[in-house]
Amino acid sequence: MSERLSALPRRAFPWSQEAVLQWEDSDIYGHLNNVAYLKYFDTALNMALIDHGALDPSRCATDPIGLVVKNGAEFFSEITFPTRLWVGARVEKVGRTSLTWGFGLFAADQDLCAARGTYVHVYVDRQTRRPIELTDKLLACANALAAPGDN
């Protein structure tokens, strides 16, 4: 079994965006539902790629796409409605055909994340769905979003 991650501060994430916790994302216990965390992480991942020119979401795009082959989250504290959110993203590992992404989800007034997420993206050709080596755009994005040495 792997070692438990620790909550990280906002400064550990080179890219971030604000969001508003949606009413529909709350569960019967009054807090952000576990599944919803992954939705916020997935949105952050794709927005970070778009912001860094590494993903063209248009239908006519030819750049590779990332397929999630592994994901998960660890939770440290509750997030309850209503609150503003802050989600941070970073690249934690660069492979030949993959990037390992890390995320932190924060209640707006907190410096330590309430949850950390991890996604492994394998980049594939849009038509064949076969893995391809990371493009220069993806490598530049990974470099810009490289995690500091605080894992």
Results as ranks from 00 to 15, higher is better:
P14M: 10
P14H: 10
S16F: 11
S16M: 14
Q17M: 14
Q17Y: 09
Q17I: 08
E18P: 11
E18H: 10
E18T: 13
E18Q: 13
A19N: 11
A19K: 11
L21Y: 04
D25F: 07
D25L: 07
S26H: 10
D27S: 07
Y29A: 14
Y29D: 13
L32Q: 04
N34E: 07
A36W: 03
Y37T: 00
Y37V: 02
L38G: 01
K39C: 08
F41I: 06
F41D: 01
D42E: 04
T43M: 09
A44R: 00
A44Y: 01
L45I: 04
M47D: 14
A48E: 08
H52F: 02
H52I: 07
G53A: 11
G53Y: 06
S58Q: 06
A61K: 03
T62L: 12
D63K: 07
L67K: 15
V68H: 09
V69R: 08
N71H: 13
N71K: 12
G72R: 04
A73T: 02
A73Q: 01
F75C: 05
S77K: 08
S77C: 05
E78S: 12
F81M: 08
T83H: 01
T83A: 09
L85A: 09
W86N: 11
V87Y: 08
R90T: 10
R90W: 00
R90G: 10
V91L: 04
K93Q: 07
K93Y: 04
V94G: 09
V94A: 10
G95I: 00
R96S: 15
T97E: 02
T97G: 00
T100G: 10
G102C: 01
F103K: 01
G104Q: 01
L105H: 00
L105M: 03
L105F: 05
F106G: 01
A108G: 14
D109W: 03
Q110C: 05
L112E: 06
L112A: 04
C113G: 01
C113W: 00
C113Y: 00
A115S: 12
T118Q: 04
Y119I: 05
V120T: 12
V120M: 10
V120C: 08
Y123K: 06
Y123I: 15
Q127R: 13
R129P: 11
R129G: 14
R129Q: 13
R130Q: 10
R130P: 07
I132K: 00
E133A: 12
E133N: 09
L134F: 09
T135V: 11
D136F: 13
L139I: 04
A140K: 09
A140C: 09
C141A: 13
N143E: 14
A144F: 15
A146D: 14
D150Q: 15
N151M: 14
N151G: 09
